[in-house]
Simulated scan of single mutants.
Amino acid sequence: MSIDVLPATEDEKPVVRRLLELNSHDFSEFDGRDLGPTGEYGYRYLDHYWIEQEDRHAFIVRVDGAIAGCVLVRAGSPHRFGEFFIVRKHRRSGVGTKVARAVFDRFPGAWLVEEISGNDAAVAFWRRAIPVDFEEAETSSGTSQRFVSRAH
């Protein structure tokens, strides 16, 4: 299985937008968000991922050449995920872990990964996917892991 995590071009923004709709659909179970008047959830900050000064980065995930997800990274100190989405077909197959680790390698340094309260599957995933020791915290809004990634 070939897994690629490639920067999304501005021409691929509509693909990322559609993937984020699928992600929002999955998340509506946790955040209770409703569809907007056009039948979409929308993603307010998507355009920011193609503005260089924003230090945001959009990636499309492909498995054997087929679109399999997207990742949005807000680089900084610490780095954070804007979104991390793998389509259901490729979940629980190791794809997400390989993608996460590829992103950590691409952005070495301090990271903060956050999971919304109630999303126990995401907490379990990140505990497995983070390749180094991390500090975990729980608050009323969810769980988070802090760690430092070093490029391999």
Score class of each variant (00 low, 15 high):
1 M>T: 01
2 S>R: 03
3 I>V: 07
4 D>A: 06
5 V>D: 04
5 V>Y: 01
6 L>W: 05
6 L>E: 12
8 A>Y: 08
9 T>Q: 14
10 E>P: 10
10 E>M: 08
11 D>L: 09
14 P>Q: 07
16 V>S: 02
16 V>W: 00
18 R>I: 05
20 L>G: 00
20 L>D: 00
22 L>E: 13
22 L>M: 14
22 L>Y: 08
25 H>C: 12
25 H>W: 11
26 D>A: 14
27 F>Y: 13
28 S>R: 09
31 D>N: 14
33 R>K: 07
33 R>D: 03
35 L>G: 01
35 L>W: 01
37 P>V: 02
37 P>D: 06
38 T>G: 09
40 E>V: 02
41 Y>C: 01
43 Y>F: 10
43 Y>E: 06
44 R>H: 08
44 R>K: 11
45 Y>R: 13
45 Y>P: 13
46 L>S: 08
48 H>F: 05
48 H>W: 08
48 H>E: 10
49 Y>L: 02
49 Y>C: 03
49 Y>S: 01
50 W>A: 00
50 W>N: 01
50 W>I: 01
50 W>D: 00
50 W>F: 03
51 I>A: 02
54 E>G: 03
55 D>C: 03
56 R>S: 01
58 A>N: 05
58 A>H: 02
60 I>P: 15
64 D>Y: 11
66 A>W: 13
68 A>M: 15
68 A>D: 15
69 G>K: 02
70 C>L: 13
71 V>S: 04
72 L>N: 00
72 L>Y: 01
73 V>S: 06
74 R>V: 09
74 R>P: 09
75 A>K: 09
76 G>W: 11
76 G>E: 14
77 S>D: 15
79 H>N: 15
80 R>F: 04
81 F>E: 06
81 F>R: 12
82 G>R: 08
82 G>M: 10
84 F>C: 04
84 F>M: 11
85 F>G: 00
86 I>D: 00
88 R>W: 12
90 H>F: 10
91 R>C: 10
91 R>D: 02
93 S>M: 07
93 S>D: 02
93 S>V: 05
95 V>L: 10
96 G>H: 02
97 T>L: 10
99 V>E: 09
99 V>G: 11
100 A>T: 02
100 A>W: 01
101 R>D: 11
101 R>N: 14
102 A>T: 15
103 V>S: 08
103 V>N: 05
103 V>Y: 04
105 D>T: 14
106 R>S: 12
107 F>M: 09
107 F>S: 07
108 P>S: 07
110 A>L: 09
112 L>D: 00
113 V>R: 00
116 I>Q: 13
116 I>N: 12
116 I>G: 14
120 D>H: 06
120 D>Y: 06
120 D>K: 04
122 A>V: 12
122 A>F: 11
123 V>P: 03
126 W>M: 09
126 W>G: 03
127 R>G: 12
131 P>H: 05
132 V>G: 02
132 V>R: 06
134 F>H: 13
135 E>I: 13
135 E>R: 14
137 A>D: 12
138 E>G: 07
140 S>L: 07
140 S>K: 08
141 S>M: 15
142 G>R: 11
143 T>K: 11
143 T>F: 07
144 S>F: 05
144 S>Y: 05
145 Q>S: 14
146 R>D: 02
146 R>N: 03
147 F>I: 03
148 V>R: 11
150 R>C: 02
150 R>V: 05
150 R>Y: 08
152 H>A: 04
152 H>Q: 03
